[in-house]
């Protein structure tokens, strides 16, 4: 019947509105759940979410060894040309020529933190770091070489 539908519609509407108001009312009275980070003030105690991505870094062991073989899989995976891997040929102990990474050039100013390079890396040489204070006065400072000088390929990584 028309009238019953009319009034049940009103009751439903009022119910749903009250539900929404209960939610905002709950937030209003529970100040502990506030998610605002007062950033420069709480810099020392800042806790970033686990999946936050700040920049691409290359992991180095204490012996200045990295896991990058120079396979350029990351360079191919990158959608906007952020990574440029410059390779060289090294002669190993057995006298064989082997491809190795010379310079791992990373353009932070182009990076969109899409994580595709990390997923493409077969040897887990690079990862996402959580540092995010990247502002500099000169754009050229954002072009970085990720492998440290004189670093070597870690033993056993092919």
């Amino acid at each position: 019947m028309f009238l019953t539908r009319y009034f049940s519609e009103i009751a439903e509407a009022v119910g749903s509105l009250l539900k929404g108001m209960r939610m905002t009312g709950y937030y209003f009275t529970h100040h502990k759940e506030i998610i605002t980070q007062q950033y420069p003030d709480n810099r020392a105690t800042l806790v970033l979410p686990e999946r936050f991505r700040g920049e691409v870094v290359m992991t180095h062991t204490d012996n200045n060894e990295h896991r990058c073989t120079g396979c350029t899989a990351c360079e191919l995976a990158c959608p906007n040309g952020t990574i440029k891997v410059v390779t060289k040929f090294e002669v190993n102990a057995e006298g064989k020529k082997k491809k190795a990474v010379d310079k791992f050039v990373y353009h932070l100013e182009l990076c969109t933190m899409c994580n595709l390079c990390i997923e493409a890396c077969p040897t887990d040489a690079i990862r996402m770091a959580q540092t995010f204070e990247h502002s500099v006065y000169d754009r050229s400072q954002l072009t970085r070489i990720l492998n440290k000088p004189d670093s070597k390929l870690q033993e056993g990584v092919e």
Partner: peptide, 10 residues
């Protein structure tokens, strides 16, 4: 202030 607290802001 009210809007901030209702949206879990400061």
């Amino acid at each position: 202030k009210v809007s901030a607290f209702m949206q879990i802001r400061l």
